[in-house]
């Protein structure tokens, strides 16, 4: 059972509902489902609802609602148990080319996890994971949690640019790039699944709360 979330201002037009200070499964689920409830029935004056890993940004129009009133509204919704369950979309399979040129850090990551590359890939693929959040860049999807793999810190050095479709691993999570970005995460593979298409509406295939399963390509 989580404590009552903290509600704090983020500037003069935003409010953050924070379910935990650190990343955990329960807080992430709570944040994502609360955001979905607000998105389905946004309170008057709310202009945007954005789920984060363990918090929800609520942007509002101060000409229509003030911080104090909106905070009260959020508290009521939280007390009413808003966001109890996530409606399930089918699990999105994601075929990954692990290792080699596509995943130059795979051997090192497996070694640091005390596993051979094949064992690491077997554990990394096959399990259903949740999209924990979209952030950092367009369509960039944090997926977790890899319960049967040890959490591993990021690399010491940042790669200046990796292409869209790169499969990244760090901190017990896998992230998928949807645009070229610099990254300090370990590069373990590539996929043809790109979670961002600027010409599509909606532009993302996966959003926070959806389920994915990695498969060996």
């Amino acid at each position: 059972m989580l404590p009552m979330p903290l509600i704090v201002p983020l500037g003069d037009r935003g409010l953050l509902v924070r379910f935990a200070e650190t990343l955990d499964d329960e807080a992430n689920s709570a944040a994502v489902s609360f955001a979905r409830t607000l998105q389905a029935t946004p309170p008057s004056g709310v202009v945007e609802v954005v789920p984060n890993l363990v918090s929800v940004l609520v942007r509002y129009d101060p000409a229509r609602i003030g911080f104090a009133e909106l905070r009260g509204e959020m508290q009521l919704q939280l007390l009413a148990g808003a966001g109890a369950a996530l409606p399930g979309k089918p699990v999105q399979p994601i075929a990954v080319r692990y290792g080699g040129e596509d995943g130059p850090d795979l051997e090192e990551v497996a070694g640091a996890s005390g596993l051979g590359a094949d064992d690491f890939v077997a554990r990394h693929s096959g399990a259903d994971l949740r999209v924990l959040a979209i952030g950092f860049a367009p369509g960039f999807a944090y997926c977790g949690f890899h319960g049967d793999l040890p959490p591993l810190p990021r690399r010491g050095a940042v790669r200046p640019m990796v292409p869209a479709g790169t499969v990244l691993y760090a901190a017990g999570q896998t992230a998928l790039t949807a645009t070229p970005i610099p990254t300090g995460w370990h590069v373990i593979g590539r996929t043809d699944f790109i979670n961002f298409h600027a010409g599509a509406e909606p532009p993302l295939s996966l959003v926070a709360g959806d389920s994915v399963r990695f498969m060996v390509s």
């Binding site: 983020l10 500037g11 037009r13 935003g14 953050l16 924070r18 935990a20 200070e21 650190t22 990343l23 954005v50 984060n52 890993l53 363990v54 918090s55 940004l57 942007r59 959040a133 952030g135 950092f136």
Partner: peptide, 10 residues
């Protein structure tokens, strides 16, 4: 810190 939304002016 756990990453969270940024707004202009932060």
């Amino acid at each position: 810190l756990v990453s969270e939304s940024v707004v202009p002016g932060d």
